[in-house]
Design a protein around this nucleic acid. Sequence first.
DNA 1: CGGTACATTGAAGGGGCTCAATCCACGTGG
DNA 2: CCACGTGGATTGAGCCCCTTCAATGTACCG
Lengths: 256, 256
Amino acid sequence: MAPQPSQARQPCLATPLTRKLAQLVPLTAGEIAVLRDVQSATRLIGRNREIISEGRKYDGLLVLIEGVSIRYRVLHDGRRQVLNIALPGDFIGFPGCFFEHALYSITAMTDCVVSAIPFAQLLGFFETRPRLAAAIFWSFSCEAAMYAEHLIDVGRRSALERVAHFLLELLTRLQTIGLAEERSYHMPLTQELIGDALGLSVPHVSRTLKQLREQDLVAIESQRAVIKNVEALSRLADFERTNLSRFHLRDQFAKS
Amino acid sequence: MAPQPSQARQPCLATPLTRKLAQLVPLTAGEIAVLRDVQSATRLIGRNREIISEGRKYDGLLVLIEGVSIRYRVLHDGRRQVLNIALPGDFIGFPGCFFEHALYSITAMTDCVVSAIPFAQLLGFFETRPRLAAAIFWSFSCEAAMYAEHLIDVGRRSALERVAHFLLELLTRLQTIGLAEERSYHMPLTQELIGDALGLSVPHVSRTLKQLREQDLVAIESQRAVIKNVEALSRLADFERTNLSRFHLRDQFAKS
DNA sequence: CGGTACATTGAAGGGGCTCAATCCACGTGG
DNA sequence: CCACGTGGATTGAGCCCCTTCAATGTACCG
């Protein structure tokens, strides 16, 4: 039953990463080919398996092709903070992967397919494929921007606002990669995980979700999250500002 | 009394940025010259003046040469979350500066000297000065790593641990740029600001500092912070892991 | 001297935590 | 087919950390 690591799989023509980067920079056929090539060697990682352990070494910049993974740190007494949640098309391990030793642990929340871009190849992109390099660089910038939003969440929002914001962010992120409907999506995360991401305890996550349910804003049933009132929930979570137009890249970079 | 913006100043031979990057990658005379050149056009910004307003445009990648600035977001009801604190040698505005419109506001906490690297020039570095580009890229990675630490602070640590961790982080950061002694430094931040950075109220920051004072761990008097027991404070804050060796860059990047 | 900015301290309240019990869905083995 | 174990969600009771509100103190400055 345990999935085999290092198992090869057939590359798909349009990976989530390709789609994501193509939204940013019009990619040439050549660039798409390079991206496909780079993602051809994949590893399969089973649910709850560690992709990277803190302190270990990366063998390249990892790309999540399929599944959901989390990056986190656990403190000496067991408290855990989830730093971010990676969805298909996301890079895994930025910024830790650029250091000699991984700064955080990364674990697969569902069965995952990942591929690794060797560092040498990535560096080569800066010379041979500047547009690709720019797109990747932009992707890191977005990642850092999400960190900032996450920090605002945890630092200055109430539990209700946090959970609301979290669910909306997940909705929009899943929509951009075609994994969510207009108002609903498959929720791959347990309440314990949501709590560790938002700095809340499990019972309080449960109570907060109940509150959202009773206000007819959100319903989560059998791993399916339905945002019943996007408008009201966005207002509650102060979410307007996070619309995607904010993440519009400077023309200079897009055209480089 | 209000300082004049856009006022030219003589460049110094070893700016904080040059020193910081040189710690990472041995810089050639040519690279140092480029860096000096890039930082020659400086702006002076007075205390409490905004360097960048949310929604405005950046004219380049800003470098803080002198002073202390903060990046933050204020929510609709006035709550404020400080995202990070920039010290001399830090880049200002990553990641927001790569987007069409600034994502956050940046304000000078003290009189600041900043310079701007035009985006076109920065992009050129990837081709003409790859080592410089790599060093800058690394610097961004460090920035993102600090975000993560900050998130752990706010999400999963008690007020006491947060403040302790914060003071220690400030100590080590100031030490690496030569602005702190062995166990003490000039504290440029008000308690309100510390609170907004750590997600605490001003009264509680005061109480927490009092507690640290009574335990003979920290003393702050007339803007001078003295860590009286680095060892014990580090244990309290779970700070061992954040020693600088963790931020060692991969050889591949350092030598590129 | 009065004004401003910041730090301190107290009292009271609440939001979220801990601890613990219960429930439910599901898979597994007897 | 049912008993049982397991992982996760739910709910309750009590409490404590931190907030809010407010007053006071203090240094500095025009």
